[in-house]
Amino acid sequence: MSTIGRPWSEDRTRTNAVLDSPVESPTRTTQDELAERAGHLRGATRFLLDDVADVHDEAIDIQMEARTDEAAKRSVADLLNELAELGFAWRDIARLVGVTVPAVRKWRQGEAATGAHRRAVARLLAFVDVLRSEHLVNEVSSWMEIPLAGSRRTGVDLYCDGHEKQLLLHAAGHLSSEELLDCVEPDWRDQLDDRFEIATASDGDPFIRLRSEPG
């Protein structure tokens, strides 16, 4: 006879199973297994994420090297002209490449650059090229000059400090401005200074004043 439809109390085995055995509080073994499997999955996922990040980093390196090789075929003056057409200031180009403004001026006028400097200029243009073509950054120069996350630090500053890859990850949306700064300058928040503000005077020129209320 089927036990379906019978009161649970009439079927001691099933009733016991329902009432006496801890279905709503599974065995210690089951809890441990579940926690262990979840922990294992979490660990595996973390390792997977780390592996994916490593592969992505390597891919970025390969992409940047390839584009730098391509750009380096052109003359330095040509590379500089393209950067200028994109709106970069000469002093920023000099900083980004690690030389003085007069050195850049000489290259513009046709003086030869060393191999290392030629590659640095090519690398900068490759970086700009990746930002434009892969991450759809329209005005790269502006993008590089905008202060990040309410700080005074800009993309130009971070590139000069060697954080090219982190900037690319930021452009790709993998890092927010705050995460980018957390990653490269963990104490950046301590350096924020909101005691002053810029306002416009009656003569139309800007001036600096103390904030009436902290921002």
Partner: peptide, 11 residues
Amino acid sequence: RDPQQRASTRS
């Protein structure tokens, strides 16, 4: 005066 517009003015 606007950092966001400087590059386009330079260009």
